[in-house]
Design a protein around this nucleic acid. Sequence first.
DNA 1: TCCCCTAGAATGGTACGACCATTTATGGTG
DNA 2: CACCATAAATGGTCGTACCATTCTAGGGGA
Lengths: 269, 269
Amino acid sequence: MSLPPLFIPAQVGRAGEDVALQLEVAILSEKILPGVSLPSERELQHQFQTGRGVIREAIRVLKQKGLIEIRKGSKGGAYVKKIEVSNVSESLALFLKQNHIDPIHVAEFRESIDRTITYLAIARASVAEKQLLVEKTKELFVFIDQPEPDMKVLGEMDRDLNILLAKMAGNPIFEWIMRALQLGFSSHDQTLYEHPDYREKTIINWYETAQQIADNEPLSALASISIHYAALRHCLAAHNNRAPAEAQRPEILLKEDGTLSNHDKVKDL
Amino acid sequence: MSLPPLFIPAQVGRAGEDVALQLEVAILSEKILPGVSLPSERELQHQFQTGRGVIREAIRVLKQKGLIEIRKGSKGGAYVKKIEVSNVSESLALFLKQNHIDPIHVAEFRESIDRTITYLAIARASVAEKQLLVEKTKELFVFIDQPEPDMKVLGEMDRDLNILLAKMAGNPIFEWIMRALQLGFSSHDQTLYEHPDYREKTIINWYETAQQIADNEPLSALASISIHYAALRHCLAAHNNRAPAEAQRPEILLKEDGTLSNHDKVKDL
DNA sequence: TCCCCTAGAATGGTACGACCATTTATGGTG
DNA sequence: CACCATAAATGGTCGTACCATTCTAGGGGA
C-alpha cells in the first residue's frame, strides 16, 4: 500500500511499451532490488489501470531482456535479477547467426580477441587461476586416441576453457563477447576436433598455451595461439573446398504477388 | 492453406515459449523471409491451436529479439526483418548499465579491436579507401581552436571515421562490433574532445594514424593508437578522481521480512 | 475519364472474465 | 512430531468483445 503508487496509468495505443518502460526504469534505477519480486500481475493491473494482457506482455519483454525471472505458484512472481553475461550474449549470437557470417571471419575475429585475452590473463590472473586453467586442459587428454569421442562433452569442455580464460582477462566485456561467440558458433571449433589428427594437435596446443600462460610467457602463448588458428584456417579451407556452399542470401520478397495470402509465401517444410 | 501447417500445436504450460521458439526457428531457417509477414495473430491462433494471448506474448518476445517489426492496420502484422546492430548494442548497453561497467574496460576492449582493425585495414583496404580516410580526418581540423565546437557534429564525425576504418578491415564482424560500441557509448570518446588540449591532440592523432595507414606503416599506426588510448586512459583517470562514485551494488534483499507485501519492499520515488 | 473521398475489411491493441496448473503455507490427523 | 490434505496466491491459458489504425476498393462528383 502507501506509495504515490510508483507506477502511473499507461496510455492507450502503446500501453504495453509504456508499462514495460516504467518497470524497466524502476528496475534499472534500483527502486526494485535484485531478489525482490515485482507486484503480482493482478496488482500491477490495478496500479497501471490496464488489462492483465498488457501487464503480461510487458513482463515478457523484461524477461526476454534478462531483467527478471518468473516463478509460478504461491510466492511466485517476477523476481528481479542481476543481468548476467549469458543473457546478453544471445542477441549478438542471434545477429551473427542470421547474417550468415563466414566462418573464416569468425575465426579471424576470435583470434584477435583471443590474443588480447591471453595477454591480459597473463598480466592479471592469479597463480591459482592459471593453475586451474592448466588442470582443466589436462582433462582434455582423455579424448586423445579415442576413436569415437563424445563430441558434445568435448565441445563443452572447450567452451568452458575459452570462457574461463576470458574471465581471467579481468574485463567483463571480453567474457561477454566470448560467450556470445560460443553461443553462436558452438559448432565452430568442432571442425578442429573432428579429425583425429587435428584433435590431438588442438588438445596439445591447449595444454601448451595454458602452461605458457601459467609460466608468464606471453610471446610463447601468443605463438601457440597463432598455431591454433593457422590450423583452424587450414581446416576451414578444406571444408570450403568440399562444400563451396555459396549461400546466396535470398532477396527480400516484394509484395506485388497480391494473390497469395501471407502463409502461402512461406517455404514448405 | 496447403502446408503441413508449418507450425504444430503448442503444449500447455509453456505454450508461449513453444510458439516463440517455433516462430524463431522458422525465421532463422528462412522459411519466412525478411520483408514477409508472419500470418496474422488470429491465423496463428488457429495454426497453433491456442489462445490469442499466447500468440501475442510470443510475438512480443520476437519483437524484443529484433527478429520482427510490427505494423498496425490492414496489411499490418509481424514483418520479418534482418537483425540490425541496434538490437545488439541495446542489450550491450543494458548490460553495461546494470553492471556498472568501468569505462576503462570499454576503452581497453576498444583498443584491442582498434589495433586489429588497423592492422587488417592496412593489409586489405584499397588505396582509394585509405585516401578517403585521410581526407575525412582532415575535415576534423576545422574543430581545432574553436572555443565552442559543436560536440554533436564532432562526435558524429569521429563515429563515422571509426566505422569507416572498421569497414576497411574487410571483416563484417569488426564493423558490427564497432557500430555497437559507438551506439552504446557515443558519449565515450567525448571525454577526449571536451578539453581543448586533448581535442587538438586527438584530432592530430587521427590524422597521423590515417596517414600512416595510407602509407602502409603498421607499426607507426599502432603506435599512434597506443598514444590515443594512453591519452584516453589518462583522461578517464582524471574523471574518476573527480568523482570516485563508489557505486556499491546493494546486495540482494532476502525475503525473511515476511510482514511486508511485495510492493512495500519497493523504494519510494 | 479522372480524381477524391468515404465505407468497409483486415489487423494489431486493449479489456474483462473465467478457469487451469503449480507452488507454498496452513492446519488437522495419525 | 511427522505426514498429508486443503486452501490460498500466483502465473498460464482461453474466449469474446470492442477499439484504433491502416489499406483497399468502389462510388460519386468534377
